[in-house]
């Protein structure tokens, strides 16, 4: 089945038993289908990225999940786990929104591992968007570009308000 033969319309969660649910359109028939992908043995102590990886590498789910970003899948699974952990849905959504946000001032060396992984997954979306890889018409292994600075733009304050110590 080619990528273009269907389109993911919605994705969501089922809490009990835990599962990711997607609704997709089969273009040839214009019919909507629903697919439920259970998270096996998933508990409040399970690792989100591991569960996401298990789903993504499951050949039975591959063609449905290839269109859903890792970040989004991890978000859905985190919502399920928060619920198992006793967190309210509102709190979980707020927490997940924060995890999905990239704050240029936030020091990611200091966040917990799960948050870091999630933020990396969010950044990966941008990375993939601009990616030029082997096989792409404009791919070149060694691309050198020089940029001219006419001194018009300073580093937008990146060098000022400096707490930088001399050494």
């Amino acid at each position: 089945m080619g990528d273009e033969e269907y389109e993911v319309k919605k994705c969501g969660v089922r809490f009990n038993p835990p599962a990711i649910v997607i609704t997709y359109l089969v273009k040839s028939t214009s019919k909507l289908h629903r697919r439920t992908m259970p998270l096996r043995n998933f508990t409040a102590n399970s690792k989100v990225d591991k569960a996401a990886e298990e789903l993504r590498t499951n050949p039975r789910h591959l063609k449905y999940l290839s269109r859903i970003t890792k970040a989004q899948l991890e978000r859905l699974i985190t919502i399920i786990r928060d619920k198992l952990d006793g967190m309210s849905l509102a709190d979980s959504l707020a927490r997940n929104d924060r995890m999905d946000q990239i704050d240029p001032e936030e020091d990611l060396n200091k966040v917990d591992e799960e948050t870091l992984k999630r933020k990396k997954a969010v950044m990966d979306i941008e990375f993939e968007k601009h990616r030029i890889k082997p096989g792409d018409p404009s791919f070149q292994y060694d691309i050198s570009v020089d940029f001219e600075q006419n001194g018009e733009i300073e580093a937008a304050g990146w060098d000022s308000d400096s707490s930088e110590g001399e050494f």
Partner: peptide, 12 residues
Amino acid sequence: YVSASDGRNVVR
């Protein structure tokens, strides 16, 4: 100035 995504200046 580099981009691991589009490859500019990485090899250089």
